[in-house]
Design a protein around this nucleic acid. Structure first.
Lengths: 212, 212
DNA sequence: CGTATCCAATACACGAACGTATCGAGTGGG
DNA sequence: CCCACTCGATACGTTCGTGTATTGGATACG
């Protein structure tokens, strides 16, 4: 025990972080395409251009990667929403602002729906996933509640139901609309959501769309 | 039951049908508990009190059983809803009628959510499942559209959005509320759904609840 | 009472995926 | 320029699940 452990080694981890990032990137694709329990380690590393060695050097199980992917995507979503909110002139929140927010997260679309929904299923059966999911949801709703509240104030509308329920409902409908869109159903895609359902539901009136 | 002339062999299939039923019964439990891709043949037959032989004599793959379970449960849901609708005095549809319908399907609750959601995920990746799901959804919505339409007429409300969208939205919210309930969230369980969100959204006004 | 038939139990062979242990190449420090 | 170390590649043994082939017991029928 003569040699004192040399100073911290922040060095070599650059390569490491790179491969970890590439693994996560590939994991997002593969999980969305095939689903959590259909993905094997071999399949994942192949998609990322590595071999098993790289995987077990960075992670210890497929499930761990799935958690990482979810939290990663969740963070990106949150960042996107915050960005969209800040891009709105102060105090200028309107129904269009909600539309802008929806569009800011729409690129995540299908992949996010698949990952998120699968994580919900996991959370309903797994304590740890439940904790993560609830925490993420809490943060996410917190951002939206403010915006929706501001929109309502600006439009001089008072919600007839608690603001939290309005927000929760909006999220539920958005998620559902993505699924419907990709199932080929026309009744409730994101377009209908923004054009009529959301205004009617959140705000209590409908956009000046069709005249009937 | 008139005596249909027993053609070849209608006989021995009684035992067969019985084991098939027991297998499906166990499958519902196991799929809900563990999820489609976590369930093995051994696990399933053990839960039903059989061995592998019984399984491969009646089915050819786990996925086939999952399809059967989904269609089976979907039929039961539809039957329950139809029963609840017929139990309502003709022309007496009111908001309480919707409550009665919700309660008629509530026993399915968690299990139905899990099976259905997993089937949605499957449908987003699998052509055959997509066909089955869309067809089931179509029938289901068809029943509900009539009821909700009648409720609106009776309450002398005209929907500001297409009736199909109202129905789709109600279904989406109901499903979401089950998930929230079992995730331990209080913001949007079935109670809030019935008490405030659904009336506000579907009907354009809120129940005489709190006075604010 | 015997027999033919059907169905689930059992045994087995195969393949897929996992996790580990080892090796070699690349990287930063001295 | 060399050394020490880190990280990803490769090879291996093992476990787990599948699907099939065969066997044994039950049931209807003559």
């Amino acid at each position: 025990m003569s040699a004192v452990p040399p100073p911290p080694r922040p060095a070599l981890s650059r390569r490491r972080e790179n491969t970890r990032a590439r693994l996560l990137e590939a994991a997002l694709e593969v999980f969305a395409e095939r689903g959590l329990k259909r993905v094997t380690v071999d399949e994942l590393v192949a998609a990322a251009g590595f071999t098993r060695g790289a995987f077990y050097s960075n992670f210890s199980s497929i499930d761990e990667v799935f958690f990482a992917v979810f939290e990663d995507q969740a963070d990106r979503m949150l960042t996107a929403v915050r960005g969209a909110i800040e891009a709105i002139p102060q105090g200028e929140f309107s129904l269009d602002s909600l539309g802008a927010i929806l569009e800011s997260v729409h690129p995540f679309g299908r992949q996010w729906y698949l990952i998120h929904t699968e994580f919900v299923l996991l959370a309903l059966r797994n304590e740890e996933a439940r904790t993560v999911l609830v925490e993420h949801s809490r943060r996410f709703r917190a951002e939206l509640v403010d915006v929706i509240g501001d929109v309502l104030v600006r439009l001089e509308r008072r919600p007839t139901i608690p603001l939290e329920q309005v927000t929760e409902t909006a999220v539920a409908l958005y998620m559902h609309s993505i699924a419907q869109e990709h199932l080929g159903e026309q009744t409730l895609g994101p377009d209908q959501l923004l054009g009529s359902v959301l205004p009617q539901m959140v705000l209590g009136f409908s956009q000046p769309a069709q005249g009937t």
